[in-house]
């Protein structure tokens, strides 16, 4: 088996699927947030992998994919911070960390 771009992408897809399934099956917001981290990481993996296969020229490297991944990491950090803050707020309000309990936005 030769390991190429496709392999990385396939791995990333599998990881993304696992994250998504986790997000869908878990009701604990903490775990859902973790699932989201898994999904974001899988996307980062694709970005970095693509970047590896389009590296540009020496002295004029193409780092778009890695830069993007970097930004994704930053955004993921922000997301985790806000998400956890919301979680705490919700826990105060409802004494629960279940996502189903947050349904005040109904209609």
């Amino acid at each position: 088996m030769e390991i190429g771009l496709g392999t990385y992408l396939a791995l990333a897809s599998v990881l993304f699927g696992i994250g998504a399934v986790g997000f869908l099956t878990r009701r604990n917001i903490l775990l859902q947030l973790m699932s989201i981290e898994v999904m974001l990481n899988s996307v980062n993996l694709t970005l970095v992998a693509f970047n590896r296969w389009t590296p540009g020229e020496p002295g004029a490297w193409n780092h778009h994919g890695q830069v993007f991944a970097f930004f994704v990491i930053a955004v993921a950090a922000a997301e985790a911070a806000v998400g956890l803050a919301i979680l705490i707020s919700l826990y105060r309000l409802k004494s629960s960390v279940e996502s189903d309990s947050a349904d005040l936005l109904k209609h």
């Binding site: 998504a20 997000f23 869908l24 009701r27 859902q32 996502s99 189903d100 947050a102 349904d103 005040l104 936005l105 109904k106 209609h107």
Partner: peptide, 17 residues
Amino acid sequence: LTRAQNGVVFAYAGLMV
């Protein structure tokens, strides 16, 4: 349209899926 907006995170995720 408001029927779909039931406020449950799972429902939105399910639609997305």
